[in-house]
C-alpha cells in the first residue's frame, strides 16, 4: 500500500503541484481553517472541518457565464469558457465528497451546466477518513459515514495512530493521482485507524415522511425563530446550489455572473409585482428544510444534506439543521399518524 507520513502531507501537495495539479487543501488563513489553493510553505490542517466546503471549487461563489463588448447601444457577444484547471481536492471530508452526487444530479438532471461539468471533470477528489468529530457532525444520520467513499477518487486513511496516511486509489483518476505523487509516497504496510464513531441523532426517513404531510404545521414558527435571514448556512453548505444571475457592466464591457444565492434571503423569491411567496423567515426556513429533506428525496431519490454540520458551525444565531431534524423526528414519535 501507498503511505505518507502525517507530517509530510505538504510534500504530497508539492509533488502534485509539480505534476500540474492545482492543489486545494485545508489551510489556516487568518485564524480560520479553510479549503483554498495550497501554496508552497502552507501547512495542511486536517484537525478541523474547514469553514467552507469543496463545492466552492466546482460551483464558485461568482462565475462569469456571459460576456459582451459594449459600444454605445450595440453589444457583441464574446465566447466564455469555464475556468477549469486540473485540480485535486486533498484532505477534504467524506461529507464533501458525498455532496457530489447531488450537485452532479442538479446540474445535469435535464439541461446540462457545462460550467459545473468542466470543473467536475477536472477534479480528483481525495477525502480523508474522519477519526475525530465535533458536536455538529451528523453524517451518520443522513446516510453518510466518517469513512464513506462515495464521490471519492482516492481515500486518505489515517493509520498507525495518526502518524501516517494510507493513500488508497478508488478510480482511474485516483490511480493517475498516485502516479503523479511519485516518490512523495512510500510503499509499505500500516494499520488503518478506526473511523470516529458518530451516533445517529434522528431517523432521516421519519423526517422526510413528516415533512411530506406537514407543510402547514404549527412547528415551523418555533423551528425558525432564531433565524435572522443571512446566507451563511447556504454558502457553507456542500449541497446548496441556488444561484442568482446578475449583469455587471462598465462602459466597454458587460459580464453576466452566476452568483451564489440563498433561499434564506427575503429578496430571493420577491416578484417584480411586489408579491412574495415566502414573505417571512418562517416560510424561508421551511423551504430550506423541505428542499433538503423532502423535495430532493422526492425528485432525485437523494438526501439534500450530508451532515457536515457547517451550517450550525457558522450560524451566528445558533440555528442547527440537526437539532431541527431531531425535533421533527421527535414529533413523529409523539404523534403516531392519524391519517390513512
Amino acid at each position: 500500500m501507498k503511505l505518507i507520513d502525517a507530517n509530510k502531507l505538504t510534500a504530497l501537495a508539492a509533488a502534485l503541484a509539480r505534476a500540474g495539479y492545482r492543489v486545494v487543501a485545508p489551510v489556516e488563513d487568518s485564524g480560520v481553517v479553510r479549503l483554498k489553493e495550497w501554496a508552497e510553505g502552507a501547512a495542511i490542517r486536517t484537525g478541523a472541518v474547514p469553514v467552507n466546503s469543496a463545492k466552492d471549487f466546482l460551483f464558485p461563489p461568482s462565475e462569469i457565464i456571459g460576456r459582451w463588448d459594449l459600444d454605445g447601444d450595440d453589444f457583441m457577444p464574446r465566447d466564455v469558457q469555464p475556468d477549469a484547471p486540473k485540480t485535486v481536492l486533498l484532505a477534504v471530508r467524506p461529507c464533501d465528497a458525498a455532496a457530489l452526487a447531488l450537485l452532479d444530479t442538479v446540474f445535469n438532471w435535464d439541461y446540462k451546466d457545462d460550467f459545473y461539468n468542466a470543473r467536475r471533470q477536472a477534479v480528483t477528489v481525495v477525502p480523508m477518513v474522519c477519526t475525530a468529530a465535533d458536536e455538529q457532525c451528523f453524517c451518520t444520520s443522513v446516510g453518510g459515514a466518517p469513512d464513506a467513499t462515495a464521490g471519492a477518487d482516492a481515500m486518505l486513511r489515517p493509520a498507525d495512530g495518526g502518524t501516517r496516511f494510507i493513500l488508497e486509489p478508488l478510480t482511474d483518476k485516483g490511480n493517475a493521482l498516485l502516479d503523479a505523487a511519485g516518490l512523495a509516497l512510500a510503499e509499505g504496510e500500516a494499520a488503518a485507524d478506526p473511523p470516529v464513531e458518530i451516533a445517529r441523532r434522528f431517523d432521516v426517513e421519519a423526517v422526510t415522511e413528516w415533512l411530506s404531510r406537514n407543510f402547514e404545521s404549527d412547528l415551523w414558527p418555533a423551528l425558525s425563530l432564531a433565524c435572522l435571514g443571512c446566507g451563511a448556512c447556504a454558502y457553507a453548505c456542500p449541497t446548496c446550489h441556488c444561484f442568482d444571475i446578475q449583469d455587471e457592466a462598465t462602459r466597454r464591457e458587460s459580464v453576466r455572473l452566476k452568483n451564489w444565492d440563498s433561499c434564506g434571503f427575503g429578496l430571493f423569491t420577491l416578484h417584480a409585482g411586489g408579491h412574495n411567496p415566502r414573505p417571512d423567515q418562517t416560510a424561508r426556513w421551511r423551504n430550506r428544510v423541505m428542499h433538503k429533506f423532502s423535495y430532493i428525496p422526492e425528485r432525485f431519490a437523494l438526501v439534500g444534506c450530508t451532515g457536515c454540520g457547517r451550517c450550525a458551525r457558522v450560524c451566528g444565531a445558533g440555528m442547527s439543521m440537526s437539532e431541527v431534524c431531531r425535533l421533527i423526528a421527535d414529533e413523529t414519535k409523539k404523534a403516531p399518524t392519524h391519517e390513512s
Partner: peptide, 24 residues
C-alpha cells in the same frame, strides 16, 4: 404561474412551489 426565475432551466432553485420547479 409566473414565479421569479433566473436560470429558467431547473438549476437556480428559486421558482419552486413545493417540490415542483415552475420553470420545468
Amino acid at each position: 404561474l409566473e414565479n421569479r426565475m433566473k436560470c429558467g432551466v431547473g438549476k437556480c432553485g428559486r421558482c419552486n412551489v413545493g417540490s415542483l420547479y415552475v420553470c420545468k
